[in-house]
Simulated assay, not measured.
Amino acid sequence: MSRVPISRHYGLDWLRVAAFAILIVYHVGMVFVPWGFHAKSPNGADWAVLPMLAVNAWRLSLLFVVSGYASRALLSRASHTGGFLRQRTARLLVPLAFGVAVVVPPQSWVELVTQHGYAGGFLSFWVHDYFRFGALGGIVLPALNHLWFVLYLWLYTLVLALLVIAVRWRGAQRVFDRLFAGPALIVLPLAWLVCIHAWWFPMGYETHDPAHDAMAHMSYLPAFLFGFALAGSAPVLAACVRWRWAGAAMGIAGYGFILAVELVLDGGAPRWVYPLYGAAHAVQQWGTIVALIGFAERHWNRDAPVRQMLTEAVFPFYLVHQTIIVVVAYWLMPAGLPGGAEFAVLVAATVAGCLLFYQLGRRIAWLRPLIGLRPLPHPHKAAS
């Protein structure tokens, strides 16, 4: 594979920052919808599902596409594939271990206290119950929770490294460029996603257990590899620009069908609707991703002073945001706030808590690797 460095794409940096910002708001929304979550508000409402479904189909697939793109840039700067894999392993698995051991436990404790009648305090739970490597109240401990994304990203990076070693990438890149520079950019991924959501797993759910999550792997691994190939393909980026409005129309149409089903059938869809619902999910998913990449390439590929800080802060924000949401939601339960006020407090507290976590962690040398940041440069190297 060529080691020509991949230039930074500021548009995809902005897209990554925006996707994680949406994720924070989405996880705040999880407190209010009837879906399972670690903390539930007394202000929950069925209608809150409707805005959540506007992003549910594409938010995670987009993150894997952008992560694949970034992986290509990192690999192009590495001296060899093994070095790339070691660097990514340290940057992903060290924060994952820290997150599972330190960041996630409050989420599990709140869930057990509020939904399963657990009577112990947090410190007692953390010391005596959390590291049991078994189930408590139906919850497997220790827990990955939202950090499944980091584990999957590392697993896909491992697959990528093996493919880089095994495949003649110059030839594979040419095939990708020719294939996806035309209408196949829309048709082939959409056909694959329709098979997943309408045929193989209609109305299926991800488990976030890597050994038993075929639906997620069949969707996210190709998205990650697509992003990797996209990073070396000017023709396919140009195709995303050409198809951006068609993709936006697909995304709106797919969401419109899903919205109609939810409103008309009130969540009680008969089984014959499942394949149609799944196909609409696929249309919304891929159309929105193509549109967003096209807009990022056409309109957002420019730098700004705040971009570097935001792109560095994304991983620490992701690491801690859900714990802040769950703990603050738990504290707010007795307050009796109206739903709108509770939502606003949760969003503000989460952003403030994430920013504090990042600003403190980036200044402490031994904490930086634990929250996914590069080590501080050695003083002698910095001086030179």
Score class of each variant (00 low, 15 high):
176 F>R: 05
372 G>Q: 11
219 S>R: 15
301 N>V: 12
87 Q>W: 07
238 A>S: 14
310 L>S: 06
344 A>K: 10
107 Q>S: 11
135 A>R: 10
348 A>K: 11
146 H>N: 12
360 L>F: 14
64 F>D: 01
166 A>H: 06
326 V>R: 05
3 R>G: 10
365 A>Q: 04
211 A>G: 07
133 F>R: 07
51 P>F: 04
35 W>P: 00
280 A>M: 07
324 I>R: 07
315 F>V: 06
67 S>I: 01
257 F>E: 09
172 A>N: 01
319 L>T: 07
266 D>S: 11
310 L>Y: 02
132 R>Q: 14
25 V>K: 02
162 L>P: 05
193 L>H: 09
345 V>H: 12
294 G>R: 08
165 I>W: 15
235 P>T: 03
107 Q>C: 09
100 V>L: 08
18 A>H: 10
244 R>Q: 13
43 N>H: 10
66 V>N: 04
271 R>P: 11
74 L>S: 14
359 Q>A: 13
196 I>M: 08
287 G>D: 14
156 Y>K: 04
249 A>I: 06
382 A>N: 02
334 P>R: 00
17 V>G: 00
57 A>P: 06
29 G>T: 11
57 A>T: 13
31 V>I: 15
272 W>D: 06
54 A>T: 14
257 F>G: 00
311 T>R: 08
166 A>S: 08
278 G>E: 05
376 L>D: 03
144 L>P: 00
117 G>N: 04
334 P>G: 07
334 P>T: 00
239 A>V: 01
378 H>K: 02
340 G>M: 08
347 V>A: 13
355 L>R: 10
50 L>A: 12
44 G>N: 00
204 G>Y: 08
28 V>Y: 07
116 H>Q: 14
40 K>F: 11
226 F>S: 07
283 V>A: 02
219 S>D: 03
341 A>V: 15
21 A>T: 13
170 R>M: 01
318 Y>P: 05
